[in-house]
Design a protein around this nucleic acid. Structure first.
Lengths: 240, 240
DNA sequence: CGATATTTGTTCGTATGTATC
DNA sequence: GGATACATACGAACAAATATC
């Protein structure tokens, strides 16, 4: 067996045993090379393998870190809201709204919200955080006509749910979610404090009031390394 | 505005208007260069932009093709089975089982199937197709002890559902699905007739019998460009 | 704040063992 | 056996980002 595989196995074992805690920095490549008595390249190849497995990640100039376990975010259940779902998983949710504006809807947005072409929508963009680390960037659009106070609400509360509540929409449910994936470009990677080429999960969701009127179309790009989406049917029917 | 952007916009428009149908080949780069009166490099830059957007894709020596619209595959509903879900969407499903074997379960598999450590499992690997094009590769593991005839069934029927039916498991439902994403490496890209660096959606699903006993743990890598996963709550509860 | 040391990322080059045709 | 390709391993140097003082 090759040297670098042996070293990778050794490190994988160390991490599994809790010798290096999630989020912590590994010894430097030079230190590991000295410890194993090999060239730095050989250590790098082992680390690259672990990085491919998603077990560690590196930041130039800073070091190699043990990847924290990705947070679960349930899609299917009743807890539509990001804050509550993450808090239930025992993590600290956060949301940061960077941009609020009002403009005319494009064709896709109008169709999703069941609006006539050319209708006005509020747009909110920002980043979702778990334990202070960005896990997703989002853009939400809302029908402007019957939610005139929404932009102020968003700016003041920093929360979509709270802002909708203020506008007289206390309850909503998810009509559907569409999931696809992309590779991060430089812009998105920077926004998520990740690297270009990282895998992103893209979700497009439409939330509706209890009577079925669309209130929000949310587009999110999730950093796949930091989050796992889960679907658990709560109704749970059998399937012949 | 730069020349290549203008050309990219032009081509995007042509595609949107249906001038080039999904799946069809675009004119060669040389032909496009002649048509727009520019150098081939300029056309290539425009095509690269469209390729980044996922609108077209190229195969060396073959040409540039308009990306077919991704198929929807519902995750949450009652139609767990790939065949039926794709057929319902009006496309032609296919499945190809490349490999069937029996071995001892690893720790993750044993836990997912609620088996004791070291238990035997059947493993099936293959590729899922839509309209003859690969959209996913999968690996399924099944508890071997109470499904002794499964490998033969898989080899003879080529269908997981049919093989399970033969083994006395006529019905099952999805207990949960976990979704994450990766970037395709060379091996997976080749298997999916895609390119390294393409985005993949990875799902891990556990199917259980009506009484809750796990029968299958399925791992799938979906080519994001060719499929969209959807989640539509059929129970549909409100969420305050 | 700026200077400096540390650390990862990248690119040369060289050499060796192994598998394949 | 010869020719070739490939993976592995080591060495040196530099670039770029980060940490530290």
């Amino acid at each position: 067996m090759s040297l670098w595989r042996t070293i990778a196995d050794h490190l994988r074992d160390d991490i599994a045993r809790g010798h290096h805690a999630p989020g912590e920095r590994l010894p430097s490549e030079a230190a590991l090379a000295a410890r194993f008595g090999v060239n730095r390249h050989t250590v790098r190849q082992a680390l690259a393998a672990l990085s491919d497995e998603g077990l560690v990640w590196s930041r130039r100039g800073a070091g190699v870190f043990v990847q924290a376990a990705p947070t679960d975010y349930p899609l299917g259940g009743r807890t539509v809201q990001f804050h509550r779902a993450i808090a239930l998983a025992g993590r600290m949710p956060g949301r940061q709204i960077d941009f609020v504006a009002t403009r005319t809807a494009d064709a896709v947005e109008a169709e999703a919200l069941a609006l006539p072409p050319g209708a006005q929508v509020h747009v909110a963009e920002g980043v979702s955080l778990v334990d202070g680390q960005p896990v997703a960037m989002f853009r939400s659009v809302f029908p402007a006509e019957w939610l005139p106070a929404l932009p102020d609400g968003l700016r003041e509360t920093g929360s979509i749910t709270a802002a909708l509540d203020r506008c007289g929409v206390p309850a909503f449910r998810r009509a559907h979610t569409r999931i696809t994936a992309r590779v991060a470009d430089a812009t998105r990677a920077a926004r998520l404090q990740a690297r270009p080429g990282d895998a992103l999960i893209r979700t497009e969701a439409v939330n509706v009031t209890p009577d079925g009127t669309p209130v929000e179309r949310g587009l999110s790009w999730w950093l796949a390394a930091r989050i796992t989406l889960t679907v658990t049917p709560e109704g749970g029917g059998s399937d012949p």
